[in-house]
């Protein structure tokens, strides 16, 4: 079977169906094929092909020098002393904290599990109100100073972007519609978890906000998103917290930052039931078992399977399956308990 520039022995829709039925080899083949296709799309990626040997997840922080270019000047690399630019130091430190969390909690060596370099670009563009993950590295703007401030210093923003890298290598969730909303959801989940670890907060002390430190006093809101109360973080926040209010429009890659509010709320509710560490393990193991086009119902189905297994071997609370079921039911997603 061939589409333009792409040939498959087994058509992707068959691989997807088999992956949904638990075939790990098919899931891997599907994810690898898509990843290879993406890699081929840019010359830059081809130039940056890494060797097979594992790395150490070394951090490299580049200064974009307020241009819309990445890797302009390397300012600090792994092991270097602190530099004059505090934004560079903060990007270095926060990405190190995130790396340490994944290594110590899940034994994950950097984003790809093979110790790929963790590359950050700071001072990107002029008054640039954004941060993104492009498949290879992270890029942060300074904000316009009016409504937004430096994105690279915020632990939750850095964790969110770095998590996009982890997701890319674990499940490669397609960045559109429900699978895209799940991609965003997993980034928000681990941004929240890591922020609470960084701030040494309990779940009752935490604000459950994403991006609260990148907004200024002039911004009409307290943050970018709320895990506790999706749709309430700011005047523009249109996140639903229930499937009844699911966004089906075309904006934002068909609502990737909008509909993520639904599973985000389920995660928050589940943390209240069994604690954030059990949830972290359940969500991480679920992501590891997902595939590129997974939908909300697929996540719940896989999560119930994963939770049941983790509960049986005592890795998470024996109440975990019930907690997951209850939390997702509260946002309008019902699964069949295993």
């Amino acid at each position: 079977m061939c589409s333009k520039h792409q040939c498959y022995i087994v058509p992707p829709f068959i691989l997807e169906e088999l992956a949904k039925r638990g075939n790990i080899a098919c899931k891997k083949a599907l994810n690898d094929t898509q990843r290879i296709n993406q890699k081929r799309k840019t010359t830059l990626n081809n130039l940056l092909q890494r060797s097979v040997a594992d790395g150490n997840g070394d951090r490299l922080v580049f200064d974009s020098e307020n241009q819309y270019e990445q890797r302009q000047s390397l300012i600090r690399k792994e092991g270097d002393d602190i530099v004059v630019d505090t934004v560079v130091n903060e990007a270095y430190d926060t990405s190190g904290f995130v790396r340490k969390y994944f290594r110590e909690t899940f034994g994950l060596n950097s984003m790809d599990g093979n110790g790929m370099d963790i590359i950050s670009n700071v001072h990107y563009g002029i008054d640039y109100n954004n941060a993104y993950w492009d498949g290879d590295e992270m890029t942060y703007g300074d904000g316009d100073g009016l409504e937004f401030t430096n994105f690279a210093s915020a632990i939750d923003v850095v964790a969110h972007e770095l998590m996009h890298g982890v997701t890319q290598f674990l499940a490669n969730l397609e960045y559109v519609s429900q699978s895209g909303a799940l991609n965003e959801h997993f980034s928000d989940v681990f941004a929240t978890i890591i922020k609470q670890k960084y701030l040494k907060q309990s779940i009752s002390e935490a604000d459950w906000l994403i991006g609260d430190t990148v907004v200024t006093d002039n911004f009409p809101g307290v943050g970018i998103r709320s895990m506790m109360s999706p749709g309430t973080a700011n005047d523009f926040d249109s996140q639903p917290d229930h499937m009844d209010n699911y966004y089906s429009g075309s904006q934002d890659n068909q609502g990737v930052h909008i509909n993520s509010g639904i599973p985000n709320k389920a995660f928050y509710l589940c943390c209240l039931e069994i604690g954030i560490d059990d949830c972290a393990l359940i969500w991480f193991e679920t992501l590891s078992a997902l595939w590129r086009t997974a939908q909300f119902n697929d996540v719940l189905e896989i999560m119930l399977e994963v939770t049941s297994k983790l509960s049986e071997i005592g890795r998470v609370s024996e109440r975990a399956t019930e907690a997951v079921t209850k939390s997702f039911a509260a946002v309008g997603l019902k699964g069949v308990s295993v």
């Binding site: 954004n130 941060a131 923003v157 970018i224 998103r225 934002d252 890659n253």
Partner: peptide
């Protein structure tokens, strides 16, 4: 301008 980390259009 749509999308981005903030999701604010």
């Amino acid at each position: 301008i749509e999308g981005g980390f903030t999701g604010i259009s």
